[in-house]
Every structure is written in structure tokens, then in C-alpha cells.
Amino acid sequence: MIVVKRKPFEEIKTMLKDYKKVLTLGCGTCVAVCLAGGEKEVGILNAELSMARKIDGNPIDLGATTLERQCDMEFLDELENVVDEYEALLSMACGAGIQFLAERYPNKPVLPAVDTTFIGANRDVGWYEEKCRSCGSCVLGWTGGICPVTMCAKGLYNGPCGGTDNGKCEIHQDQPCAWFMIYERLAAQGRLDLIMEFQPITAWQNQKPRTLVQPGYEKQKEAG
């Protein structure tokens, strides 16, 4: 899932300072699961903003809607009749959702209330770990299911480097060395031969905006 973090309150407040009527938009998918941008978080943010603006003597009128997904035009269409009532839209979706919202309603200022942080997994409710950098050419098949692009601080393909320190990364004692873990797991599986071979220079796939058209979509279009 895409994990996001709410922006500092003061930053959000500053972004909204010139607006008196704003629609805060939650998203019902990833950001709701990671407890940062769902219906509940929209309510909390609006309550905090209303109170702060009231104290400042500059009250704000805040609407609240949570869409099923902001990264899907179909759901954004639902706002068509209400958007004109507001001066600006405050989105709590990930960067993809925020941009789609801005594209769908190009005449409205669209503002981010969260920082999109990473593609990660749930370690526990409220505890998330980055797991994937969407490099576009997955290596997990020969790295024991541990991603060196994400988990190694240097993104090495031929690790571990000389900085491994008792199984930890040189950057911090709390950070496990990804390549140490890869080595241990492959050793336990008797598959160390996979990392004995020299891995040549990577052809990076993530250096320009990517578009993906699945074969099924092509077929559907051809069929009309």
C-alpha cells in the first residue's frame, strides 16, 4: 500500500490562510488503511482547522467528503456538483490522487494535506515499513525475497558492502543490513549460488514518468 503522513498542522494552516471555504477530501483506500487520510482523519483535521481559525478570528467553512479512490476519474466525477461551492480543495490522498484531483478540476487550487512517503507494509496497526521503490525490474526472485534497492541504504546489487556491522547497516544500529539478511536467508535455503554471480549495471526503469497499458486494455479497445 501507499503510506502517507499528515503534514505538520502549521504548514496546512499556512497553505489555507487565504481561503474561507475549503473542501477537505479523504481517500478510502491506502491512506485510510494507514490511518492518515481516511474519513476519520478528515474529521479530525477539519475540527483542528476550524478551531484554530476561530481562535485567530478568521473562521473557515470546511466541507468533508471521502471518495472511494482519488486515483480514479470515475470517483472524482462524484464531486462535480459540489466543487463550485468551494474556493479550494484540500486532499488527503497520496500524490497520485492529489494530481488526478487537480487534473479533473483544473480551475480549483488543489492543496496537499499529507506527504506521500513510501510503498510499504503493515508491521502492526499504525506501524508501516517501506518495502518497494517500484524500480520497475524486480530482483526479489534471486535476493531471497528481500529488496536491496529499497532496504540497502546504498541500493547495492552486489552486496553486502564492507560496512556491515554485526548484521546492521553502517548508517544505524537500528537498521538491519539488507544484504546480510539476503545472505542469511539464501544460505538457509541453500541458494547462495544466486548471489555469487556478478550482477551487471542496472538499466534503470524509473528515470522518466511511466505509463503502463495492460494487454487486456489493448484487446478491449480493439474489440471496440
Binding site: 546504498k154 547495492l156 546489487y157 552486489n158 558492502c161 556478478f198 551487471p200 549495471i201 542496472t202
Partner: peptide, 11 residues
């Protein structure tokens, strides 16, 4: 870290 040290050797 476009490339790593072993890849640099090879380059």
C-alpha cells in the same frame, strides 16, 4: 549509487 563498486570495476 547509480552503479555499485563491483559494477564500477567492470565498467
Amino acid at each position: 549509487f547509480d552503479i555499485d563498486s563491483i559494477q564500477l570495476v567492470n565498467m
